[in-house]
């Protein structure tokens, strides 16, 4: 493997990171919105969200990606590999995030809401100042876990031709007739990123256990 090959893999890594970040950034608020819809029991919308989340949590990312990439143009929506990739990642992660946010919302002590109501706070203010800051804290470990999972499924993007880290590794392997070394380089790039996220999650969970432990 030459220096140019390693560079190609790094270029692929940049693409992977960009697409992952977009998926994460879009998936977080979308997941929160869906969780709120279910928590507030909006008629019809909450049932739709429930079905959507259930389906998406059961669907492999590869299958979803292929579905979007091939089926959307068929119904008149032209979509390229990169957009399909971002859409698939976002849909997938938003479904899992929804469940993480929802768990925090359901765990949220009702009496705090009643206290806020009793001093005259309206719904949006209650949410912004009382609910949101606390559910962010309790959802954080689960959300970070989701981020690490999202990064780990990004190799799927290669299936529809996105020149990400995996596709670069495959191409170089095919050219040099040595398939293994590029994959090791690819894993070497993924490892520290995922490890950093997993360590962050563990640290957050330990910190929360310490803070919430009875005095």
């Amino acid at each position: 493997m030459s220096a140019a090959d390693v560079l190609a893999i790094f270029n692929g890594a940049v693409t992977t990171l960009l697409l992952s970040s977009l998926g994460i950034l879009l998936g977080l608020p979308l997941g929160l919105a869906m969780a709120l819809i279910r928590w507030s029991r909006v008629p019809l919308a909450s049932q739709l969200v429930a079905v959507y989340v259930s389906l998406l949590r059961a669907t492999p990312i590869v299958t979803l990606l292929l579905l979007l990439f091939f089926a959307l143009p068929n119904v008149g929506v032209p979509i390229g590999p990169i957009s399909a990739g971002i859409l698939a990642l976002t849909m997938n992660t938003s479904a899992f995030n929804c469940e993480v946010w929802r768990a925090s919302l359901m765990d949220f002590p009702k009496d705090q809401l009643e206290a806020a109501q009793s001093v005259g706070m309206r719904a949006s203010l209650r949410f912004r100042r009382i609910v949101f800051p606390q559910i962010v804290r309790s959802s954080l470990p689960g959300l970070i876990n989701e981020m690490s999972l999202l990064i780990k499924v990004t190799p799927a993007l290669a299936v529809v031709g996105v020149v990400d880290i995996t596709r670069a590794a495959v191409r170089i392997g095919a050219e040099t007739y040595e398939p293994l070394p590029p994959f090791f380089v690819a894993i070497a790039i993924y490892l520290p990123i995922v490890y950093a996220l997993v360590s962050l999650q563990r640290w957050l969970e330990r910190r929360r256990a310490r803070l919430e432990a009875p005095a």
């Binding site: 990064i151 190799p155 995996t166 495959v170 398939p179 994959f183 894993i187 993924y190 490890y195």
Partner: peptide, 10 residues
């Protein structure tokens, strides 16, 4: 910390 697809390739 390893993506499954890459591990499967290996």
């Amino acid at each position: 910390c390893t993506p499954f697809l890459l591990f499967a390739y290996i």
